[in-house]
Design a protein around this nucleic acid. Structure first.
Length: 576
RNA sequence: GCGCCCGUAGCUCAGCUGGAUAGAGCAACGGACUUCUAAUCCGUAGGCCGUAGGUUCGAAUCCUACCGGGCGUACCA
């Protein structure tokens, strides 16, 4: 059996061979594009870019390539001006697509690497003084999708998170707890732990506005923490535990998982010793007040502080320490940081610092940045409590989905209904985020996003459920291996051609670290399927062969939708 | 000031490393359920791809300048 990837490679080799024999060289690249709808072909290759290389007109090149010997599975290679259009034999197209999907199932389009690259993907990395909000959702959703895509491409991926569990923001929550909530726990307050601590943090902000002394207390608390004061450390541990327990629930709903969780409180010393090391080597320098700096003006940045005058560490110091620690323990080939675009400068500085300290792997660090998430009123401000809380949002979306389900005729018990509503509600958020390119800001319209119309996760899930319903009614899907050639309708061919492109969609999305490509592909696939669905019958198709062939087509589309959705972290439901 | 990102239909966005006639969705209007899930489908309408130059056989895509918006430029994280 030949896979789609092997078949495309084979075609490329043949085209190159023809170029070598006729023009004396290989083309720079052979890109398999999509012919316009009016042309009946599976691939289009443009010959413009070869024109300069071979000193012939694109049309001449197209004609020459089209004359090549073709394997028996290629139906025709037809030059059309500067393009060649390649059409596979319909039977081969069907067999290749169907057999591969049947063989690979939920791993359709995945690849194996002989020596898998080890990739650390850092994402989420929250502060432990408040619950996760919409901005974190974007981070987690992107992070999960990137992890999944890289894994599908055969990489050895380590999802990592670092909890920012120390610093003045934590102390603020602790001060407020002692002053206003002493003796209470998340249980007595009837709240999730992260929400409980978040409440103390908000309270601090409110109270400290009219009372400067609170800020003083927070600073004193930070000093006590650094000094290792037992009572302070005790409270700190307790509150951190509340928060992380709350996070675990949120992560479970979001589908975020980590293989490596580290704590800033364990790591920040490492960065400091690296800084001192750098001073010794003459890479960093001290100012009179004792602070440590390095100069990035030669690469268009500024001077950056790396340790404070009082010897305490900064954000950059911590990330330096974490990076070196991870490299030492895991020897990654790449490190991908999923962090908002407001940190672009920070990561430039971080990577530059690592490079100057002599770590060659610094060149393999990538900051995958993404845009802001705005509310209609403006940027989210966590201290003002004007945020879309992650848990609340997931609840709201789930409830919305439930309401819509109530109106439907679906006969299912309450537990199933809840679970499906959860998949739809959370899938809607995820798809809403993933379908736009990461760099774009998202203007989040809470009401609008609750709609399930158009290019949405629910649309994809609905299409999947619709197909599954047909397959369930059909019972056993007969094996049509020996009866290819029955899918002759336009919609059927278009669907097959779309399926043909799934493996490349995955590898492109993974290579660009861009899940939105996959999100878009799935929407297009679902759209094509729904077009087919309204125009043609499956179960009572005209003849048993067509019925069987269509069932197999349906099964393949459903499986591809499921594969894609799951890579995006969205559950494909059987019914809805 | 400097750096990075964004600017495509009324709104939200696609448009792959330049390539066959700029595409969707939403909103608006008009159609399609005795028929495999109408959370669907079909149709109509809507564009000087921010502006001006440049490179090219060919530009929404690459380069330059400008305009508009965002983010950053902390001994905050």
């Amino acid at each position: 059996m030949m896979t789609i990837q092997q078949m495309e490679k084979e075609l490329r080799v043949l085209i190159c061979a023809q170029c070598r024999s006729q023009f004396g060289g290989d083309p720079d690249s052979v890109v398999f594009g999509m012919p316009p709808e009016t042309i009946d072909a599976d691939y289009a290759v443009e010959c413009f870019s070869m024109s300069k290389l071979f000193r012939k007109s694109p049309a001449d090149i197209a004609r020459t390539i089209a004359n090549m010997d073709r394997p028996e599975w290629v139906d025709s290679i037809i030059p059309a001006g500067p393009y060649i259009n390649i059409k596979l034999t319909p039977a081969f197209l069907e067999r290749t697509v169907f057999d591969q999907i049947d063989a690979e199932q939920t791993r359709f389009g995945w690849q194996k690497q002989d020596t898998p690259a080890r990739v650390i993907v850092e994402y989420s990395s929250p502060n432990t003084n408040k619950p996760l909000h919409l901005g974190h959702i974007r981070n987690n959703v992107l992070g999960v999708a990137v992890v999944n895509l890289l894994r599908a491409m055969g990489n050895d991926v380590i999802p990592a998170s670092i909890l920012n569990d120390r610093g003045i923001h934590i102390c603020k929550a602790m001060v407020a707890y002692r002053k206003f909530f002493e003796g209470q726990t998340p249980e007595t307050a009837g709240m999730k732990g992260d929400h409980f601590v978040g409440m103390t943090y908000v309270r601090f902000d409110q109270e400290s506005r009219g009372d400067e002394s609170l800020m003083e207390e927070a600073r004193a608390m930070l000093r006590a923490w650094e000094a290792g004061d037992p009572a302070t450390r005790d409270l700190w541990k307790r509150m951190n535990r509340w928060v992380t327990e709350g996070f675990e629930q949120t992560y479970a709903r979001l589908g975020s998982t980590f293989e490596l969780v580290q704590f800033e409180s364990d790591m920040y010393q490492e960065g400091k010793s690296l800084a001192l090391d750098g001073v010794q080597k003459g890479i960093f320098y001290r100012r009179e007040d004792g602070s440590i700096w390095f100069d990035l003006r030669d690469i268009g940045l500024d001077e950056k502080a790396i340790v404070r005058g009082d010897g305490t560490s900064l954000y950059l110091t911590q990330d330096l320490g974490v990076a070196v620690d991870r490299a030492r323990r895991y020897h990654p080939d790449r490190v991908i940081y999923v962090v908002g675009s407001e940190q672009i400068y920070h990561f430039k500085a971080l990577f530059a610092a690592l490079g100057r300290l002599g770590f060659e792997w610094a060149a393999q660090c990538v900051h995958l940045s993404y845009g802001m998430v705005y509310l209609p009123e403006g940027k989210m401000k966590s201290r003002e409590g004007k945020v879309i809380d992650a848990d609340n949002l997931m609840d709201d979306m789930t409830r919305m989905a439930l309401d819509v389900m109530e109106e439907s005729h679906l006969q299912i018990d309450d537990a199933d209904r809840r679970s499906i509503a959860e998949a739809i509600g959370i899938g809607a958020i995820k798809y809403f985020i993933l379908k736009v390119g990461a760099l774009k800001d998202i203007h989040f319209d809470p009401r609008g996003s609750l709609s399930f119309d158009g290019s949405t996760g629910a649309y994809l899930q609905y299409t999947h459920a619709r197909i599954r319903s047909i397959l369930n009614r059909a019972g056993e899907v007969p094996d049509t291996d020996c009866i290819t050639g029955w899918l002759t309708q336009k919609e059927e061919t278009t669907l097959l051609r779309k399926l043909l492109r799934f493996p490349r969609c995955l590898s492109d999305a993974a290579a660009d670290l861009n899940p939105s490509r996959l999100a878009l592909y799935l929407w297009e696939l679902a759209k094509l399927y729904n077009g087919f669905y309204t125009n043609h019958r499956v179960l009572d198709a005209p003849g048993p062969e067509i019925r069987a062939a269509r069932l197999r087509l349906c099964r393949s589309v459903a499986m591809t939708l499921r594969c894609g959705l799951e890579l995006l972290g969205i559950r494909a439901v059987e019914r809805m």
